[in-house]
């Protein structure tokens, strides 16, 4: 898993529980990396799930809620670091449509070894999309948070329904924009 996910999770955690809190969480875990992450490195997904679990314990926030919040954090981070992907989009559904077709294409150029989730989209109307998430990792809630934040980024309101979810690794999101 890309190091950026780790560095961003720890940045977000720092906002909530502070530097000392993050240090304590990392010290409490048995991590191969020792908790030292670089955005351009690759680390086992197991470590992310360990950190999410420990943060959940410490904050009392459910793991899925934490993931969902983290999804929102990541979208903001992406929009700051890679504004070019957002610049030509006028609607959040276009942005979601572009994840597989544009964003991941570029990611693979930089990191040919990246193991990326799939975001298969299907337009059901100009303001209605069905997006199927499929991943090796149980990050369905993270994806949910990402979708919500994407709506917010474009100042859009939407009804997001999870139609089918299995073991957190795959889900179908039904997204309908609301005026």
């Amino acid at each position: 898993m890309k190091g950026m996910v780790f560095t961003e999770l720890l940045d977000m955690a720092e906002r909530v529980i502070g530097e000392d809190g993050v240090d304590e969480v990392l010290d409490s875990l048995d991590l191969d990396s020792g908790g030292a992450y670089s955005a351009v490195g690759n680390y086992p997904c197991r470590e992310l799930m360990q950190i999410v679990g420990a943060l959940s314990d410490r904050t009392g926030l459910a793991g899925d809620d934490l993931q969902r919040q983290f999804g929102g954090w990541m979208l903001q981070r992406f929009s700051r670091s890679y504004p070019q992907f957002f610049a030509d989009k006028t609607c959040p559904l276009q942005m979601l449509d572009a994840i597989d077709n544009e964003v991941h294409v570029e990611v693979r150029k930089l990191y040919p070894d990246a193991e990326l989730p799939r975001f298969v989209t299907e337009w059901l109307g100009p303001e209605h999309m069905r997006m199927t998430y499929r991943s090796e990792r149980p990050l369905m809630a993270f994806c949910h948070g990402l979708i919500e934040a994407c709506m917010a980024h474009f100042d859009a309101r939407a009804r997001i329904e999870v139609l089918a979810a299995e073991t957190g690794k795959a889900a179908v999101f039904d997204i309908r924009l609301e005026r």
Binding site: S38, A39, V40, K109, L110, Y111
Partner: peptide, 10 residues
């Protein structure tokens, strides 16, 4: 360093 590395990779 991370940013530089991404640029160079690109």
């Amino acid at each position: 360093a991370e940013t530089l590395l991404e640029q160079k990779s690109r």
